[in-house]
Design a protein around this nucleic acid. Structure first.
Lengths: 138, 138
DNA sequence: AGATTTTTTGTAATCAAAACGCAAATTTAG
DNA sequence: CTAAATTTGCGTTTTGATTACAAAAAATCT
């Protein structure tokens, strides 16, 4: 994936707007996953809540960002590193949430081991959230 | 764990009330995980929303039920089968959500494989949600 | 049983998160 | 530059969740 906002927008066939550029830059600058409200506060110019919802949904649909489940029933988002296309996310890495600093990270290099399912269950997508203490808080 | 509501309440040192008995029975009767609103609609007598929140929290704290993350940023609950005590949940099984019927199941017999973490990350709790098609919808 | 203490519940109010419809503004294409 | 299509902002509404407080119910103790 490109590493600048405009390039990404072009690559994914999205119109270039202030909101999208700014939100993408937020993701590019942070190493942690961002919730809707994280995104909202990361933007100095006050973009509308609803616009942010829609932008996140657009990015999600296009395969630019992926969802990360939060333990308290919330959702965070982070950039997809590669091999995600429109409507086809391919993630096999582990997510880690630190219970100390409450940050969530993608452990891109650490893949989800094979998970055996009972007969008849068809796997489509897997989400693994490990909670614990991150190196910084340790 | 006992398989009748009153027994469970006694076992966990909880007072026997209508709400608790009814909510426990909802869980005992269903094989799927229930959200707050699932519980609410499963009760014929109209118990108050707030009471249901509190009851779920109580059960959670006592180790009677456990949290299951939902992909859309929600939380569902299901009975703990065993080895959970007050404040000490021990779950190592996989959760499965069917994207067809939207039901979530505990796959009690299917354990989470060991997940390798980078140096310095300290694991405390793991949550695995597999999404796909369940046998009934296949 | 009856009275007391403690816990639990219901109500109302509050607050935040998320969704929808529509009109205005912006981007792209011609 | 103009027109068409998309995106955005705003008002409104719905839903989810939490709090404070008074009423009700459960357990305890004569």
């Amino acid at each position: 994936m490109e590493s600048n906002a405009l390039g990404i927008l072009r690559q994914y066939d999205l119109r270039h707007t202030d909101t999208r550029e700014n939100i993408l830059n937020s993701f590019l600058q942070k190493t942690t996953a961002l919730s809707h409200s994280d995104v909202e506060t990361s933007l100095s110019d006050g973009f509308d809540r609803v616009t942010i919802y829609r932008t996140l949904k657009t990015f999600l649909d296009k395969g630019i960002i992926h969802k990360i489940l939060d333990d308290n029933g919330g959702v965070k988002y982070a950039l997809c590193k590669d091999q995600c296309a429109s409507g086809h996310h391919h993630h096999d890495h582990v997510h880690f949430k630190c219970s100390e600093c409450n940050e969530t990270f993608c452990l891109e290099k650490f893949l989800i081991p094979e998970i055996i399912l009972p007969e008849g269950y068809q796997r489509k997508d897997i989400n693994v959230l490990v909670q614990g203490i991150c190196p910084k808080c340790n």
